[in-house]
Design a protein around this nucleic acid. Structure first.
Lengths: 140, 140
DNA sequence: AACAGATGTAACTATACTAGTTACAACAAG
DNA sequence: CTTGTTGTAACTAGTATAGTTACATCTGTT
């Protein structure tokens, strides 16, 4: 029932802003997203750790550390650690090894679900930050 | 986030069991999954609601209601409602409409993420319950 | 008719993630 | 030194998960 955290969409939002008009302070980005600045700072921290942005201490201001052509949405998705252990699906532990199904099903399921996850991530990897930036520029 | 609930893998597990040796009681399935029978009954309830299984009241015993060739993992995934509103990704509400990015980013992101979600679901729809059953039968 | 075993739920628990909030130390430029 | 910003810690409310106990209800069997 859960969804993937909005950290991902917020992170993409602020990265697009940085691509368009750097440098930006956390407060400016928070104003565009309309959330608390601390929420933004936490996400910036993750993006920094992933090497996607630079932040000037003291005076403030965040900028992209890579060309927006070289940042994919998969990079962003991974940076904000929206999925634990990079595994989207979870499994019930310790199925009964004495049951022919219990003993073997997990291995089969892991394979299938890994493929499904990869299909999703592959689609994300095909979208570059620049693609979003370009679409916004055309419209304005 | 964390992960997609293990309800999905558990549901698949017990459907495979039902395909191999019906009818099965909740306790038998719980023994194979190694969890509490109520957890199984709740999942069975969702599968029943989705029209995937039949349950005999009183005497007990669950069976598939469709041919395992006609049940895909996407059917199971949808049945157990692991994702709220069928939307895998979530968005931060009310971005600032006065910001050119805030005003337009959500629409772009929704499109991209919907495509990513569809890529994943498409992969799940390509796997039939029978495929898993067949692989288990070969091995035993 | 009574019994035994199964299902269907309600209610409660512990755990964990999310998103927001307040508070404050550290920093850097003017 | 002042000012505005960043980086965190700590706390909150809300919610999903998965497990558990308890119990009413149902049905085939004896």
């Amino acid at each position: 029932m859960k969804k993937i955290s909005s950290r991902f969409s917020v992170a993409t939002h602020i990265l697009v802003m940085m691509a368009l008009s750097p440098p930006l302070t956390g407060d400016q980005m928070a104003a565009s997203v309309q959330t608390n600045p601390v929420v933004i700072r936490r996400i910036i921290g993750q993006l920094k750790k992933a090497g996607l942005v630079n932040v000037k201490a003291g005076v403030g201001g965040a900028t992209l550390r890579k060309d927006p052509c070289n940042i994919t949405l998969l990079d962003v998705y991974r940076a904000v650690e929206v999925v634990q252990d990079n595994e989207l699906f979870s499994f019930h532990e310790d199925p009964n090894p004495d049951c022919p199904v219990g003993a073997n099903i997990e291995r089969l399921l892991r394979k299938v679900m890994q493929e499904a996850q990869m299909a999703m991530e592959e689609r994300l990897s095909q979208v570059r930050l620049q693609d979003l930036v370009g679409q916004l520029e055309i419209e304005n």
